[in-house]
Amino acid sequence: MSLAAVAASPATTTAAETNGFLSPTGVEIAFLLVGLVTLGAAVVTVTTKQLVHAALWLVVTLGGLAVEYLLLTAEFIAWVQVLIYVGSVVVLLLFGLMLTKAPIGRSPDADSGNRWAALTVAIAAATALVWVVVDAFRTTWIDLDGAAAGSTAVTGASLFQNWVLPFEALSVLLLAALVGAIVLSRKAAANRPTGSTALGKQPAGTDPATSDEQPSRQGKEGAR
């Protein structure tokens, strides 16, 4: 915690990163380059005006993170990242953009009016976090030699020896999320029980609140 290290935080970052290791290894250089690509893609993701491009830049970000996991010898996490994030989450996001009829091309109102406040908060948080992290782990090195710390055998063994109960609880959570997503995205599920209870009092088809509202809304959606 020298005084020079706490002088100014951006200078602290660069000074610690260049002085901490006088000869960066090849893994570090690769990590730095892929990290720059990842961070640039992330910045484009949150700043671009074209909504579909944001999702596509998110693919670059998540793929870059998968490469970073590979460089950290966490192979299983890397392929899970590729499978789940790039394979399914981005596809889900693209489907969500299509289903909400996001405009193709530039949309000038992609950012809200409080973007400068958001930028201030983000820069302050980045400064504080980078300062603290660099100051705390200035003299810490990861030993990447030897057996991989995150190969499939190691990860599977630790997962099924020590983490079985959370693993099973996670399957229950996934089932709950599946049921919840189905319930939320069913179209007439919200009106069905009230309609059936109202059916006992009135004859069907004379309930204007449910029977007239729903087809007009669906017809409007179909016409769009």
Binding site: T45, T100, S112, W141
Partner: peptide
């Protein structure tokens, strides 16, 4: 590898996501 590399990258990515959450308008 120096531990500061992934730690700094993750901090910057987190703050990028923080900016996006605060500044974006589309859900």
């Amino acid at each position: 590898m120096h531990l500061a590399y992934p730690a700094v990258l993750s901090a910057l990515l987190f703050c990028t996501g923080l900016y996006g959450v605060l500044a974006r308008r589309n859900a």
